[in-house]
Amino acid sequence: MERNIYLPYRMKVAKITEEAPAVRTFRLEFLDPAEAENFSFKTGQFAEYSVFGEGESTFCIASPHTRKGYVECTFRQVGRVTTALSNLEEGDTVGFRGPYGNTFPIDEWKGKNLVFIAGGIALPPMRSVIWTCLDNRKDYKDISIFYGAKTVNDLVYKHELKEWEERPDVNLYQTVDPGGETPEWKGEVGFVPTIVEKIAPSAENTIAVVCGPPIMIKNTFPVLQKLGFKDENIYTTLENRMKCGFGKCGRCNVGKTYVCKDGPVFTAAQLAELPNEY
């Protein structure tokens, strides 16, 4: 009999990393080795994570598909499920259902420059694709990462930012909102779109990936367009409330487009065709 599509895999919380105030990363490992063996995903996909007794929440898979044996998710403690997740300790059991949705077309990007632009808690979906590309570094030309948060303290993956900063084959531009800097801060100060405009990455043979709060996306697209990026070469991920993850519960659609099945990865050209219901 086919597997119950609502039945989660049981995963062990193998490692908890405190990223920023109320933001944590969980590394999850399958309790059943056979399930681990059969599981695969591609960068860009998302999943339903659950605490039994509290319910399910939707997050992207924040780890790259090039690294097997575990998945990672990063979440901010806000609601019922994320609070329950936050109260867990290493060794505890969670539910995991997925992967769902489409993927970043990283094979099509081979031989191109990549510009990643993320704001705040939206680095997690991008971290997956960044590491996937870095794990296949020779396939891509220049890789630039723009990342901004409200304050220095709110930057997530601080240790990985340091790693990217030190790599000669990655250009990392970090920024914090005005007022969010500390005396020791050596990065930029200003909103993400402003910094992108200032650094002005070349649009020639380049793919841009933008993830962030709606206001950041809205203000970054025009900057990229001004720099000469075509809408087909600008990617983003949409997030809408979901329950099932596979096109039945009726929540996440934007017009006739289902974020769970047709997305979450869209190009700016595709977004332009959608009604403003996201």
Partner: peptide, 21 residues
């Protein structure tokens, strides 16, 4: 057919349910 998914727990036992929404 739009639905919600919720957990219902009593003591140490519970069930995940799909509900009309």
């Amino acid at each position: 057919a739009c639905f919600d998914i919720q957990d219902e727990t009593k003591g140490s036992k519970g069930q995940r349910v799909r509900l009309w929404d």
